[in-house]
């Protein structure tokens, strides 16, 4: 059956104020059933407040073979990290 049934990627938001995070995928015939399947498979232990499902074939992925040209140039540019500032003691959450 799963050979015929479309695949959906599942994103769950665990708390208010957090972003939806990818947790896995489910098979389902349409969006409504995909939401139900995601609820049943991924929120059984109280993990979720909100669910998104996205057809897997709607996702455009980078090619692993391109990783050198895409990501390698960033590794030598430490100055892009905001790590050269002194944070005042009064700032608690940073």
């Amino acid at each position: 059956m799963s050979g015929l049934t479309p695949l959906w990627e599942v994103f769950i938001r665990t708390r208010n104020g957090m972003a939806h995070r990818h947790v896995g995928s489910v098979h389902a015939a349409d969006a409504a059933l995909a939401l139900q399947a995601a609820r049943d498979v991924y929120t059984r232990r109280g993990e979720g407040l909100s669910i998104w499902v996205v057809p897997s074939n709607a996702i455009t992925a980078s090619d692993p073979a391109d990783k050198d040209e895409l990501f390698e140039p960033a590794t030598s540019k430490a100055y892009r990290h905001p790590s050269f500032y002194d944070i005042p003691d009064d700032i608690e959450n940073m």
Binding site: S2, H27, A28, Q36, A37, D40, V41
Partner: peptide, 10 residues
């Protein structure tokens, strides 16, 4: 299917 297996068990 696996998804329904879990749904029915729930």
């Amino acid at each position: 299917m696996l998804e329904e297996d879990i749904a029915l068990a729930n």
